[in-house]
Each structure stands twice: as C-alpha cells, then as structure tokens.
Design a protein around this nucleic acid. Structure first.
Length: 643
RNA sequence: GCCGGUUUAGCUCAGCAGGUAGAGCAACUGAUUUGUAAUCAGUAGGUCGCGGGUUCGAAUCCUGCAACCGGCACCA
C-alpha cells in the first residue's frame, strides 16, 4: 500500500497504481466531478495518472487558478480539432498557452481570415458540448511518426524528430481527434466550458524563424467563468481608450502622416510636454554630474565602419550620398560622436569618470512592420549618455545610474521596476575576456540590487553586440511592462576608436564606456506616460494645465485677469470666453483632458473667487483666486524642484 | 521585411449586388448671455489613399504601390 497525503495533512492508504480520479471518486463523487487535474507532489498532472509511490496530492478544481492554464490549453486543442474538422488538410503545429489566452498555429495554403472565426468558434462549442473524454496514450516514436506522416502532418513530424531520442511520446486523444502533446489535460472537452473567444488571426513563422514558412495563427482566450472573460474584454477596451495614438489626437499633442512614416509631427501641446520631460531630465543629469553636449546628425560612413555599426546595421541606417560621392549616415546612435568628444584633448585618469550626455536625435530605418505609433518610430530622441571610466569604476557607476533611474521612475509614479541583465549575444565584437569582465561587473551590480530587494532577472544572449546590459522595465497602471532604461558596459568601442586616457603611471589606457539611457526614447516615454495616465497627466506634466471658463461676458475681464496672474506664476493657462453654455465648455475641455477648470461668473468676479473643477471629478470647490492659483502653482512644480 | 485586414469630409462612420457620394459631431454665419460633460437655426466642406486596368460608366470589380491597424520577425 502507498500513503497519499492531502493538503490538510491527512493521509490515507491506497493500492499502488491507483489513479487521481479513483481517489477523488472515493472521497466524494462531487469532488471527482469538479476536479480537472491534480498536483502530485506540487506538479500539475493528469487526473488519470497512476500513483505508485507515497505522494502528496492536491485536487485542482476548475475554479482553481491553476486550472486556468489547463482550460486554455484544452481550448487550444479544441480549436485545432475544430479547424481540422472544418478545413481538411490544415496541418497542426503547436498551440501553447500564453499570457491572457492561447494560440494555435496551422499550416494552410490559404491563411485564415477574421471571417473564418465565427464558424470555427461554433464548431468548438459543438466539440465542447460533445464532452468527449480526453485520454492520454503513450506511443513509440515510430508509431507517432507513422501516424502523423500518414496524415500528411509534416510539421508534427518535425516536432517528433526534435524530441530527444528514446523518449516515449504522449498522445492525447479526444473523440476522433488526437494530438501529440506534453499535457497535462483535463478529463474531457466539456470542462473547457463556454467562457472562451477567438480573438484574432495572424501570420507567424514556423518556429519563430523568418527563414521558415509562414503559418496561420489563431489567437483565442478562455477563462473559467464568463464574468472573467467579460472582465478581460473590458480591460482590452480600457487599453484601447488609453491608446496614445487616439489620445494624442484628442489632446492635440501630435500627428503622423504618410510622407514621414515613423516620424512625429509634434503639435504645440505635445512639444510642451516633450520639453517638460527634457527640462526635468536635464536638471536630474546636471545634478548627477553629467555634461550635456550635442553632436552632428550626419556623419561619414567611415565612422560607422570603425564602430562596427556599418557591418551589423547598415541596412537599417538612413544613408545619404553627396555630390562628391561621399557616403554619410544619419546617426542611428550617439556613441561614436561622444567618443570623438572624449578623444578631443588629452584626458587623464583624473578626468574619469567623464559623463557625456546628449538629447540625441537618432534615425533608424526600422522595418515597416515594426512601426507602432510613438512606441516604435524611425526618428527619436534618446536621453543618451556615455560614461568613460576605468574598469574598477564600472560597478560604482552602474550602481549610480541604477539609483538615478529608479529615482526618476519614482517621480513619474512608476514604482514597479524589473532590472534585467542581458548577456553576450552570438553576434558580437570583442574578445571573450572583455565580455567576461563586463558581465562580471554587471552580475555584481545585480547582486547588490537583489540584496536590496529589487526585482531582477537574467536574459542570456540578449546583450548588445558591443557589450552586456542592464535593462529597466517598468510596469504601467494596467500592468503592462515597458522596457525603457538601459546600462551597457562596453569594452570595445573606445578601443576601436583609439580613445585613451593617461593613467596614474603615465601610461596610455583605454577607458571603458558605459552607454546609458533612462527614459530611453523620449517619444516612446511620452507615449507610455499618456497611456499610463490615460491622458490624465499630473499637473506638472500637463501642457495645458488650466482653462478659465466664463459663464457670461460679465466675467470676461475677471477671467483675463485670472489668466494673467496664473501666467505670472508660471502656469499654462488659457481663457475660454466663448459665448457658449458652461456645460458645453466643461465637456469640451474635459474631453481634451485639461486637468483644471476654473469657472468664473458674476458671483466669482464680485467675490474674487473661482470655482475649481478637476478632471475626472464632478466636484466643484470654491476658493479665492489667489489661494487657488498659489496651490496650483505649488502642485505644478516638478517633483525634483519641489524637493 | 512576412501574413491578414483597413484606407470615403477635420473626427467617427454609412454608402451592402458598378449609374460621378451621405449622416452625426467639429468648422463657419446668425440668434441665444447661458452656473459645471453637447442651446437652436442656417451655410459651407470630399481628386472616395495614389497609379494603372476592365467597363458606355468605378468609391464599388481587377492589379501595382503607399500608409495605417493586428500579429510574426527585427529592435545597435
């Protein structure tokens, strides 16, 4: 007999080979009915699994959070069965669970379109209603190979070949249909339930490699309960309402047009916001000992050959050939320019660390399909800096950067930050010893951060071609992650450009260069802020802080006076003296996301007060003009100036 | 770049089976002087993304290109 221990600590004896389902049934039929899987010694597995040794068991019911993955995974299988029923000849490939749902990739000469989804979804509901048992079988590799190749499933065949030799293969059968799968699965298709929806179709490369054929991917999502699905769909709508492209138009911040794909036309208000960010960053950097510079937009091709960018990124550079047949590139990065500044004039070890910063406008010819509003553009501004230092200063400098970045994010309300260490990629320059040193320094930084309780991660092979990096990903108001800041240790470029400093021993030494950005792309960061705040920017960031709205003409003079006073306090304020009803004005400015409306009528003019209405609230408070403006001026002071 | 979709007035969208375009909001002009998310009336506004083709006739059908949207790949 074997001893099976339950979550409450109780233990019972069973004959070896008893299945999870048997145990559940013996406890109570209703438990068996509700249970979709079990956690055996903490590992999620099929309910039909036999238990041969003493074990801890926990039944996972359908409403258990752990069941969600199974529901989605089974739903993906149901999708595949439905597709193969409706579209004979469509080949199955893989269908994993992803964040917020699942997908399944099919191979088919004609890709699926949105119009195919309702029929597929209908068929899926049929399959779920059939409630066929999902049974696991173990096949030999040859058996599986033969079965799938007989069906013309060449992609499954490839998958089978990729599974390490000797291993038996798991096959899950549901009704007439079966699939090669790692599992686990629920006992029957009916357990998927009705709270699912096919979301979209997309092309995707087989095995994620663009040299491979393109598959037709169907995305779906599934939840345990309909209300969870509804809530998810509602969240998607919410994200759409926050879309910076939509808000950018509604708030009159910027626009795009065909003639400049991937480049922003900044309107007055958007540019004001942009400049607010620049001013903020400039103050923070100056305080941190950076020296701001500016380097040329257009630089000779030779410079990019020296840096190595030509070799790796030529096809992503904007090139220009002049009449004298000289090839220049619009700078895609600022580093070569900053190295030139470092090289200009003899540097001593006493000059280190030299921190050269620039709000550098860079151009990159991004693939057309990569463009996305302000989040991915072809011309953008980096809050870029390069720190030239000695090897033993790396860790200290990286930590200083870290602290500055986290403090800056905090000022914008981003408290949840993940620090990732990305190590050497396959395609890289420089000796492995240099990489060893650079990575070692960053690992040490990561250790310090971990000790402080900072969230960290390591992503192997994701470093830049010239060095490993720390990347800073912040989480926004609706839980999305945005990678913004970066710290990259570079043992290569300074040497390639022949940069050096004179050490204490009077010998020439090659400095290490740390590339670093905090917002990353100012354009992208602006977009993130818009979405994070859903357009409701804090007063200090708002490019149109106040509108003084009159109720009748009687208050015009008073409104003008209020505007003048507010401007003296540095506030961004306009008057709305139009002959419109106050409700009309309130609506219009609220839609334009103006944070503060000061409403003035006869009464306010006589009493020298204002009625204050804040964006997002119906409440009105009355206070004296001077007090209201003083409070607003205080609120509109940037956090770093407030101290 | 690859797959799919979209492109009609400043914005949101009709215009489904080819017979030279409509609505609401915005704009403009009047009237209205108004108390916290749309006052009323009138007027004007479109090479239907761009090019080529089919047709007596194309916003509508075919085709090339571009931009955008959703993914994939890419992201120094």
């Amino acid at each position: 007999m074997i001893a099976v221990t339950f979550p409450d600590g109780a233990s019972r004896q069973y004959e070896p080979g008893v299945s999870g389902l048997d145990i559940a049934k013996r406890i109570s039929p209703s438990l068996a009915k509700r249970t979709v899987a079990m956690a055996l010694n903490g590992k999620l597995t099929d309910l039909s699994d036999q238990i041969d040794h003493d074990a801890k068991i926990e039944f996972v019911t359908r409403d258990d959070p752990r069941a969600l993955e199974l529901i989605r995974h089974d739903c993906a299988h149901v999708l595949a069965e439905a597709v193969q029923e409706l579209f004979p000849g469509a080949q199955v490939t893989i269908g994993p669970v992803i964040e917020n749902g699942f997908y399944y990739d099919f191979f088919r000469p004609e890709p699926f379109t949105l119009e195919d989804l309702p029929a597929i979804e209908k068929k899926m509901r049929e399959i779920i209603a059939r409630d066929a048992a999902i049974a696991r079988e173990v096949w030999t590799r040859d058996q599986a190979k033969a079965w799938f190749s007989a069906k013309g499933e060449v992609f499954k065949g490839e998958l089978i070949d990729a599974i390490p030799g000797g291993e038996d293969l798991k096959i899950y059968r549901q009704g007439q249909w079966l699939d090669l799968c790692r599992g686990p699965h629920m006992p029957s298709t009916g357990r998927v339930g009705g709270a699912f929806k096919l979301m979209k179709v997309a092309g995707a490369y087989w095995r994620g490699d663009h040299n491979n054929p393109m598959l037709s991917r169907i995305y779906g999502t599934a939840f345990a309960k309909q209300e969870d699905l509804d809530a998810y769909l509602h969240r998607l709508e919410e994200a759409e309402r926050r879309d910076h492209r939509r808000l950018g138009r509604e708030m009159d911040l910027f626009h795009f047009q065909e003639e400049a794909p991937g480049a922003i036309f900044w309107h007055q208000k958007g540019w004001t916001l942009f400049q607010t960010l620049v001013s903020y960053m400039r103050r923070r950097q100056q305080e941190a000992g950076y020296e701001e510079v500016n380097t040329p937009q257009v630089l000779d091709r030779g410079l990019w050959e020296t840096s190595g960018h030509w070799e790796t990124y030529r096809e992503h550079m904007f090139l220009t050939k002049t009449e004298d047949e000289r090839t220049f590139a619009l700078k895609p990065m600022n580093c070569p320019g900053h190295v030139q500044i470092f090289k200009n004039g003899l540097k001593s070890y006493r000059d280190l660390p030299a921190k050269i910063a620039e709000f550098g406008v860079v151009h990159r010819y991004e693939p057309s399909g990569a463009l996305h509003g302000m989040m991915r553009v072809r011309a953008f501004t980096q809050d870029d800096a390069h720190i030239f230092c000695s090897e033993d200063q790396i860790m200290d400098e990286a930590l200083k950067i870290n602290d500055l970045i986290l403090s800056i994010y905090e000022d914008f309300g981003f408290g949840d930050v993940l620090v990732k260490l990305s190590t050497r990629p396959e395609k890289r320059v420089g000796a492995d010893e240099a990489w060893d040193k650079a990575e070692a320094a960053l690992y040490k930084v990561l250790d310090v951060l971990k000790a402080r309780g900072q969230k960290t991660a390591v992503t192997p092979g994701e470093g830049a071609f010239y060095g490993p990096k720390l990347e800073y990903a912040l989480r926004d108001a609706i839980g999305r992650e945005w990678q913004c800041g970066t710290t990259q240790v570079d043992f290569n470029l300074p040497g390639r450009f022949g940069a050096f400093y004179i050490g204490p021993d009077s010998e020439k030494k090659t400095p290490v260069m740390i590339h670093r950005a905090m917002f990353g792309s100012l354009e992208r960061f602006t977009g993130i802020l818009i979405e994070h705040f859903a357009g409701h920017l804090p007063l200090w960031l708002s490019p149109a802080q106040i509108v003084v709205c009159t109720i009748t003409q009687d208050a015009d003079d008073y409104a003008r006076e209020a505007v003048a006073t507010a401007r003296q306090l540095g506030l961004l304020v306009e008057a709305d003296l139009r002959n419109e009803k106050i409700a009309y004005k309130v609506r219009e400015h609220s839609l334009a996301k103006v944070p503060v409306l000061l409403v003035v009528g006869k009464k306010e003019a006589a009493e020298r007060t204002v009625s204050v209405r804040r964006l997002g609230s119906q409440a009105q408070t009355s206070s004296s003009l001077d007090e209201a403006l003083a409070a607003l001026a205080q609120e509109a002071t940037p956090p770093d100036v407030k101290g």
